[in-house]
């Protein structure tokens, strides 16, 4: 079962549930942030997008101290898969579960692009096994504070360790400055931890999860990879 964490101010929690349940047929439960434990049977944790605690102080800075985050950290430390999208990515960085930080977009605008492309740099379980290396995915973005930063030495280390999973690119897969919506270093759109079981990304796979709708369903490449991983691990 997937656990989708609800913080005060989360707003993509139900979209995430819909994507996991309706599009992928997986079991899912909404978990309020004040719970000190994850529900029994939790096999993957999803931290949704939104504006937890109104983005006060820094995005994700308050949510990090929600009671459920101690349980999420224990779950991650034990090897359980944790995926954070947008605000969920910010919460994971603030919690120290992922390297780096997310800051105000370079151009100071709120970016909203249903056609954003990202290139898959690492095609591997548990989050991107359904992708080919170098595959270009179309996944929507909508954020004001998505500029990924890490010191140059740290970025080089992440790159060498294969922890940079997604980069912003154009439709041809080129990671040009023009394809970078927010000024992230190295066009980084998604990273994972050293162990590989925690990942964050600014794009919203849950918003591209239904066949037949404009915008496609490339989000299922990511969410579906996680479902595949859970089925194999069963």
């Amino acid at each position: 079962m997937f656990a989708v964490i609800q913080f005060p101010g989360s707003n993509d929690d139900r979209d995430m549930c819909f994507a996991v349940k309706s599009a992928l047929g997986a079991e899912v439960a909404l978990v309020w942030h004040k719970r000190g434990e994850l529900p029994p049977g939790t096999r993957a944790v999803l931290l949704p997008g939104g504006f937890s605690y109104g983005d006060y102080l820094r995005c994700g800075a308050m949510a990090r101290f929600s009671p459920v985050m101690a349980a999420v950290k224990r779950f991650a430390d034990a090897g359980g898969p944790v995926l954070g999208t947008c605000n969920g990515f910010q919460v994971l960085c603030e919690s120290g579960l992922l390297p780096g930080a997310l800051l105000r977009n370079q151009a100071l605008d709120f970016v909203c692009d249903p056609e954003q492309r990202v290139r898959v740099e690492q095609a591997a379980a548990p989050f991107t096994s359904r992708a080919r290396p170098g595959q270009v995915l179309r996944i929507p973005i909508k954020h004001g504070e998505g500029r990924y930063v890490a010191e140059p030495a740290e970025l080089a280390r992440l790159d060498a360790a294969g922890q940079i999973v997604l980069r912003y690119c154009d439709a041809a897969g080129e990671t040009t400055p023009d394809a970078n919506p927010n000024g992230s270093v190295g066009n980084v759109a998604g990273v994972r931890n050293a162990a590989g079981n925690v990942m964050g990304l600014m794009p919203h796979p849950e918003h591209a999860a239904e066949e037949g709708l404009p915008g496609g369903c490339d989000g299922l490449v990511i969410l579906g990879s996680l479902v595949d991983w859970l089925e194999r691990a069963r």
């Binding site: 800051l103 105000r104 977009n105 370079q106 100071l108 500029r147 930063v149 010191e151 000024g183």
Partner: peptide, 14 residues
Amino acid sequence: TLKPDVLDPQGRAI
């Protein structure tokens, strides 16, 4: 404050 080597677009706009 932001570390000196972290880009501050708000400061730049001001």
